[in-house]
Each structure stands twice: as C-alpha cells, then as structure tokens.
C-alpha cells in the first residue's frame, strides 16, 4: 500500500468512527436538507485537509469536534460560493436510511423540537450545548471551545434553563 492510500485508509477509518458526530453537527446547524448536505461535505473536506496537513493520528475526538464546529459556525462565509462546492453527483456523503428506526411518536416529536430549539440558539451556545449533549465533560468542552470549565458550566446551566423552559411550554 502506498503512502497516499495509507493516509486515505486511516482517514476513512476516522470518518467511519465519527460519522455520527459529523452528521449531528451538520444537522444542528442547518435548516434545510440541502444545506445539511453541503455542510457535511464542507466539514469532511476540512477534516481531510487538516488530516493530510497535521496527521492527527494520536488525537482523540477533540480534533473532529473542533474542525466540525469551526466549519459549521463559519459556514455563513461560504454563503455565496456554496453552489460551487456541490459535486456532480446528487448523492450525499452521509446518508440516513429512509427506514431509520423510529423510537416512538412522542420521542420523535421531542427530538424534532430539540433540533428546532437548538437551531434557535446563538452559534456559540449551540456548539456548547451539542458538546454537552454529546456527553463531553466540562474539561473536554473547555478544551474544544477554548474557555475555562467554569465558564462552560455557567453557560450550559443558562442554556439548559432556556431549553427546558421552551419544552415546558409544549403540551407533552
């Protein structure tokens, strides 16, 4: 196996492991399916460029989260050039099977609301909340975001109150 193939294989392995993270971040930052596909593509390109340049073999998922969130938050900068990114194929990079397992109607509804409420948050707060919901520790979130764990904790508590308030107004 040549060097280029070895890098590609290693990258593919990383993508397979973390594809869920990439999808969830794209989904949490986009209102439409088309935008979500474009963002996924953009994130994977950035990951590849970062992977080829820095070879983060020894790094944990911090790398994936940082690159994905930074790409998602700055996606607005590509607003005008977005069409050029789309490939010649109409297939998307990460496909969610049509027959995705349904939890139950109420849970699905709640998940849809959670998505809606996350989209209504400011970008930095959204990023913070995604990391919290992903089960990252305060220290890990602080490392990814570049702020102190105390700041993370304060912000998360405030956002949680906002989200819970919004849920409480729904009739579940």
């Amino acid at each position: 196996m040549d060097k280029q193939s070895a890098i590609y294989t290693a990258f593919l392995k990383e993508l397979e492991t973390h594809k869920g993270i990439i999808y969830k971040i794209s989904y949490s930052f986009c209102k439409t399916k088309a935008d979500c596909q474009d963002l996924t593509q953009e994130i994977i390109i950035k990951l590849w460029q970062s992977f080829v340049t820095y070879r983060p073999f020894s790094k944990n998922s911090t790398w994936i989260y940082r690159v994905s969130l930074n790409t998602a938050i700055s996606f607005y900068r590509k607003e005008k050039t977005r069409n050029r990114i789309i490939t010649t194929t109409h297939d998307s990079l990460l496909q969610l099977a049509e027959a995705a397992p349904a939890a139950n109607r109420e849970t699905d509804e709640k998940i849809a609301y959670l998505h809606q409420f996350l989209l209504a948050l400011k970008e930095m707060d959204r990023a913070l909340m995604i990391l919290y919901l992903e089960g990252k520790t305060l220290k890990e979130i602080a490392e990814i975001m570049g702020i102190s764990p105390t700041n993370v904790s304060t912000k998360i508590n405030r956002i949680k109150v906002v989200l819970k308030e919004r849920f409480s107004k729904l009739n579940f």
Partner: peptide, 28 residues
C-alpha cells in the same frame, strides 16, 4: 424533559441508520 436522554435517542437512531457513501467521498 431529559435533554441528554433525547440526544442519546437521536444518536442511537443515527448510528443505526447512517452510511458513508465512499464513492462520493472519493469523488469529493
């Protein structure tokens, strides 16, 4: 509402149903 639990429900749903299209990846 348990936000963490909801997110986990979503995660498990995504993990079961998501597929990476390698052909598109190579092309991109």
């Amino acid at each position: 509402v348990n936000l963490g639990q909801l997110w986990q429900e979503q995660t498990s749903k995504i993990n079961q149903a998501i597929a990476l299209n390698e052909q598109v990846l190579q092309q991109i």
